[in-house]
Design a protein around this nucleic acid. Structure first.
Lengths: 163, 163
DNA sequence: AAACGTTCATTCGGATCCGAACGATGGAAC
DNA sequence: GTTCCATCGTTCGGATCCGAATGAACGTTT
């Protein structure tokens, strides 16, 4: 998806496979570019800001959500991080094993699990978050302030259209 | 990341953790929305158009690239699909096991591997690609034609800024 | 032709990733 | 208080996902 072929080349190739019938190339380009950009940025973040701590993007996002909203229940944490509860269990095992977060069973409702940050975790995030934001500035460097707002807004519109 | 908190709430929470120093919230919102949207759309596609064939998004992308550009060498296929060669090996095992693609060692250079489509694979794509495009139209339904082009263009700018 | 560094795809280890199934807990109905 | 159903986090199985190491094949240099 990040290959050397242009949009026009791809469009021509698709038409030779299907004819031109019923394919919306504008929607296709918009959506596929979302995936391309996400992949590309994610790889960049993991190679730069996250590599020193051997963190994946997902692990960082979970850490970030805990940092912002602690104490937070597991179900909300999964929703906020955009991953399934099953995935979160594995990620929390990793993060708890490294001593950055803590799991505690809730007093009132023994089914729930509260996740909090350790001192070590807070120290890590205070360094890591500005480093990530620096990289966010890098990948958005060729956008004006208005374009950044426009991009964020267009993506919110897309998200609101996902059933 | 797809949680109930608004941008303003998140911004306020971040500031309470760090102070306002040196954080570019416009870049943060733009980039984080790329990830949110990609996650959301990917899950939607896997639950709708791809579920009947038990295909993941990545497997579909690989299949799509082969369909468009066959015969294609493994190294180019990985680049085009936006995944590592190591990942591609696993995905190709899956796709070849289901009889949709074929791996053949190149005649001239015995290190290379050429990937081609089977008849069964072509039949699958002729059905699957329009189904995917239907879903792409759904998630882009609230964007005008100009907005779709603008979104694609802004994302291309972002990608060109990734080192 | 022997030695060299390079370029392939694959393998390996470890971390995600998800849907489905599972056990535990809670709460409401009777 | 027991039955029933909803909800929680975890486990399980299977598919990705990547960096690093591996081994085969190549081209070039001696």
């Amino acid at each position: 998806m990040t290959g050397p072929h242009t949009v026009a080349e791809t469009e021509r190739a698709v038409k030779s496979r299907l004819g031109a019938l019923h394919i919306d190339f504008d929607s296709m380009a918009a959506v596929s570019n979302i995936f391309r950009a996400a992949n590309s940025i994610r790889n960049h973040f993991e190679r730069t800001a996250l590599a020193p701590q051997n963190l994946t993007w997902t692990a960082f996002v979970v850490l970030w959500v805990v940092w912002i909203w602690e104490p937070i229940e597991t179900r909300d944490l999964a929703l906020e991080a955009g991953i399934s509860k099953a995935t979160l269990t594995g990620v929390l095992n990793t993060l708890e094993g490294r001593g950055w977060v803590l799991r505690e069973r809730a007093e009132q409702d023994r089914r729930l699990m509260n996740v909090t940050m350790t001192t070590s975790g807070r120290r890590l995030m205070r360094k890591l978050f500005p480093a990530l934001n620096t990289q966010e500035r890098v990948v958005a460097a060729n956008l004006s302030s208005a374009e950044k707002k426009s991009l964020a807004s267009l993506l919110r519109t897309v998200m609101s259209s996902v059933p």
